[in-house]
Design a protein around this nucleic acid. Structure first.
Lengths: 281, 281
DNA sequence: TATGGATTGGAATTATTATTTCATATTCCC
DNA sequence: GGGAATATGAAATAATAATTCCAATCCATA
């Protein structure tokens, strides 16, 4: 009992796994149970746990003692500590970051704020994204000859990432940029056999809206990523996603939009691969 | 005691908050303690909790009874249940997403994968970011006459976002783009009174490295965001950040880089505002 | 297959902990 | 300000749970 006692769950887990082979039958039985049902160990009584695991309470205590604890109670502490530490749930963790960002001084606080905003956005979209919309959008885009990518200003980074990723996946695409002032012409090339990914958040860049309108009037289907059903983009779109990005210090996160954009892009890539495999097979 | 007993933590919490005004002093005291330290209620003994809250054990039991429980033990169950049902820890949540992404079929799995990658990256950078580096980088950039932003390919979206944000904050900046093929000239304009934010991840875009080398030889200080100390960018940089982005389906997340980029940008904005306020005041 | 040591089961014991009780204090209303 | 109702504190008691102990069983080894 003078050997080093595992004080944290991970060490304890490692120790148990390490000795698993050499443990007597019933002790091994309770050991396996403990790793499988750590919550039960944390909350149960020696008797209830022993019953669930199919052993005698005394065996449970012997198990604890073999690990160097002086009884079940001290072993249980480790399991409880684990719950306390992992305790901070996702929301609470975020809340902590946010509080730090709001109250805190210095630039670290700013950084924390952006991390919190990004995490919140990811969390939200993970909850709210509609699988059916995703499928629809990917089907639509997978059929397109050329995918046009339309976004300005704040959304522009997403557009460039989509264009980069589509390029890497060898999917024909065209980023509609304003640099050369040729947008109108570029937009004019699109046909109903193509498709558009348009991204715009309030306040909607007028150019984006205009180009989306024009292009949809040409019969080109649009997949839109925007921030509300009142968005002008939603009107023109065949499929649209509502993405609520949290903001900090006046700048909205792009993390959720980026994740969605990547999912669309890679989804299209996969769909095309599947389709061509089917044709060939 | 025939009133409806709160069975879940949220209901309990609401009930307590609801009655807060009408509760006797000591009961209110333990009520406040319970909401502030739910973990202690879950794991403590009546005596230990009472002591921490500064009341008698009997008060704790009366509190439970007032809420409709038949004793402290049943009240405690609710607090324990909360810990069991509580969103599994952040890591476990991520693990679940990742498992779903790996094993799962369909496009939702792809999406989950990107969300998981982004969350992981944010989590990592939140742990590993060095405050001192952040301060150094912001000081350096805040002094610059013009901030040049240098990134290609995968990192390019970050550069465009930085340029957008700097523009909104009215901070003079120049995105070094390749479109016009004038990079060499652009880079030539930079002086030691300026500064550069350079972003590049393995495999490092040769153009980025070349331009970073040239510009650093001109004596222009560089803040680099890159992925390891072996990165060629790290050599040229006055301050550099190591950002480990998780990847999924061959595409690395940008969320951590984005958060850092935003923190730098807004940090510079604040620093300048403070400085000009000091000059004027 | 006999023997010693290790392991296990189950009940007895001890310890801890929740609850109750009752005396005392406080508060509120007339 | 007095008295009833309510709230509180502290210790006694009851309940529950952990631990120990010892006999029974299992297992390896000679």
């Amino acid at each position: 009992m003078d050997e080093r006692v595992p004080r944290d769950f991970e060490t304890l887990r490692a120790t148990i796994l390490d000795r698993r082979e050499t443990l007597p039958k019933r002790i091994a039985q309770i050991a396996a149970y403990a790793l499988d049902n750590p919550d039960d160990i944390a909350f149960g009584t020696a008797a209830s746990i022993a019953a669930s695991a199919g052993v005698q309470p005394s065996t449970l205590i012997r198990f604890a003692q073999q690990l160097g604890f002086d009884g079940f109670t001290s072993l249980q502490q480790v399991f409880r500590e684990r719950l306390r530490e992992r305790n901070s749930s996702y929301d609470e963790r975020l809340q902590a970051l946010r509080t730090k960002a709001e109250g805190g001084a210095g630039h670290r606080a700013i950084f924390d704020g952006f991390v919190a905003a990004a995490s919140t956005s990811l969390n939200d979209i993970s909850r709210t994204l509609d699988d059916a919309h995703l499928e629809d959008a990917i089907s639509l885009l997978a059929k397109a000859q050329t995918i046009y990518v339309l976004a300005k200003r704040r959304s522009y980074p997403v557009a460039t990432y989509i264009a980069y990723a589509l390029g890497k996946l060898k999917i024909r695409n065209q980023l509609i940029e304003s640099a050369a002032g040729l947008n109108a012409e570029m937009v004019g090339f699109a046909t109903p056999a193509d498709a558009v990914i348009a991204i715009s958040f309030s306040p909607y860049a007028p150019a984006t809206i205009e180009e989306a309108r024009t292009i949809s009037e040409q019969g080109v289907p649009i997949v839109a990523i925007t921030d509300s059903s009142f968005s002008p983009l939603a009107q023109f779109a065949r499929v649209w996603f509502e993405v609520a990005e949290a903001d900090f210090a006046g700048f909205r996160s792009l993390s959720a939009t980026m994740a969605l954009a990547m999912a669309l892009t890679v989804g299209v890539g996969e769909k095309r691969r599947d389709a061509s495999r089917k044709r060939k097979g």
